[in-house]
Amino acid sequence: MSPMEVIQASTRVAAECLGLDDRGVFSEGKIADLLIQDENPLMNLGSLKANKIVIKNGKVVSKGVTKTNHVQDQIAMI
């Protein structure tokens, strides 16, 4: 599987298999929990183990140290 297929299998495809049509993709009207990474997981799937910021139900639930302060500044405004 390609890295994109791995990510899709663990998000969109998993939600479809469970009959959860309100999640699994980043789209208007959907429930979205977000992971913000320093690295591109398409280049290194292992980077998904090092979540820098986790947003669940619209709230920041975990913050790590990021290389990009701009990202932290944007999250702080939420």
Rank of each mutant, 00 (worst) to 15 (best):
1 M>K: 09
1 M>H: 13
2 S>C: 06
2 S>V: 02
3 P>A: 13
3 P>R: 03
4 M>D: 10
5 E>I: 01
5 E>Y: 08
5 E>K: 14
7 I>P: 00
7 I>L: 15
7 I>V: 14
8 Q>W: 08
10 S>W: 14
12 R>K: 10
14 A>T: 15
14 A>M: 07
16 E>Q: 11
16 E>T: 12
16 E>H: 11
16 E>I: 12
18 L>R: 08
22 D>G: 13
23 R>P: 02
23 R>H: 08
23 R>Y: 02
24 G>E: 00
24 G>C: 05
25 V>A: 11
26 F>S: 04
26 F>W: 13
26 F>A: 15
27 S>M: 11
27 S>G: 02
28 E>T: 15
28 E>L: 11
29 G>C: 04
31 I>R: 15
31 I>A: 07
33 D>I: 05
35 L>M: 07
35 L>T: 03
35 L>D: 01
36 I>D: 05
37 Q>W: 01
37 Q>C: 07
37 Q>I: 01
38 D>K: 03
40 N>A: 05
40 N>T: 06
41 P>E: 07
41 P>V: 04
42 L>F: 02
42 L>D: 06
42 L>A: 07
44 N>G: 03
44 N>P: 00
45 L>W: 00
45 L>P: 05
45 L>F: 07
46 G>N: 12
47 S>Q: 02
47 S>G: 06
47 S>N: 08
48 L>Q: 08
49 K>Y: 14
49 K>C: 13
50 A>K: 06
52 K>A: 12
52 K>W: 05
53 I>G: 04
53 I>H: 06
54 V>Q: 08
54 V>S: 10
55 I>V: 15
56 K>H: 00
56 K>R: 10
56 K>V: 06
56 K>T: 01
58 G>R: 13
59 K>F: 11
59 K>W: 03
60 V>I: 14
60 V>N: 12
61 V>K: 09
62 S>E: 07
63 K>I: 09
64 G>L: 09
64 G>Q: 13
65 V>L: 12
66 T>I: 05
67 K>Y: 03
68 T>S: 10
69 N>Q: 14
70 H>G: 03
70 H>F: 03
71 V>T: 05
71 V>M: 09
71 V>P: 01
71 V>C: 03
71 V>D: 00
72 Q>H: 14
73 D>W: 13
75 I>Q: 02
75 I>C: 10
76 A>M: 12
76 A>Y: 00
76 A>R: 14
77 M>K: 15
77 M>W: 03
78 I>T: 04
78 I>H: 00
78 I>Y: 01
